Amino acid sequence: MTENRQSLINNHEDLEVYQIAFNTAMKIFETSKSFPKEETYSLTDQIRRSSRSVCANLAEVWRRRRYKGSFLLRLNDAEAEAEAAESQVWLKFAVKCQYLDIETARQLYSQYNQILGMIVKMTKNVDKWLLKKT
């Protein structure tokens, strides 16, 4: 990311990774509307929650830029434990249960690979994202 582009980021919603995550979560929401009613409180709820949590974690990451350790911890949550990888698991279940066609799932899974890659890149270049101490 160029210094010029980074200076145009005023809040978490300006982050490209956040925008991709938000759009992917919305696609999952729309797609999951067709899941069977018996999945409402299991697969449907889980995939919606994990996809939305990616966005929520990225918003929190942005607010934690003052503290390197906290920033890295939140990036880790967004990447692994909390949610992008979890969303990929739920996509696989949706395909295996025949609730989601394989092409749609591949597109969504690919979006999460892109999101994960962007989060890893942020982690590797953490100092570029931290607030400057005054």
Rank of each mutant, 00 (worst) to 15 (best):
K96L: 13
W90V: 05
H12Y: 15
L100E: 07
T104F: 07
S50V: 09
Q19R: 12
G69C: 00
F93D: 00
P36Q: 01
V120A: 13
T24C: 14
S7V: 05
Q114F: 05
E103H: 06
I102A: 11
S70A: 07
M26K: 14
A25D: 08
E3W: 02
P36M: 00
L116S: 11
N4S: 14
G117M: 04
S32V: 08
N113T: 05
V126R: 06
E86W: 03
A25W: 11
R49C: 06
T24Q: 07
T44D: 11
G117A: 04
D14F: 07
A25M: 15
T134D: 05
E103G: 02
D77K: 09
R63Q: 04
Q6P: 00
E60P: 07
F29Y: 15
D14T: 12
L73T: 11
F29D: 14
R49V: 01
L130W: 02
S42C: 13
L72V: 01
L43Y: 02
Q98Y: 05
E60Y: 02
T31Q: 10
K121L: 05
R5P: 01
M122T: 09
K33M: 12
E39D: 12
K133G: 04
A59K: 02
Y18V: 01
R74K: 15
T40P: 04
A59D: 08
Q107I: 07
E16P: 04
S7I: 04
E39Y: 05
S7K: 15
K37L: 14
K96T: 08
Q114H: 09
E103T: 06
T44C: 09
F22L: 15
R63S: 10
R74M: 14
N11W: 00
A21I: 05
A82T: 10
V95W: 02
A25G: 14
M118C: 03
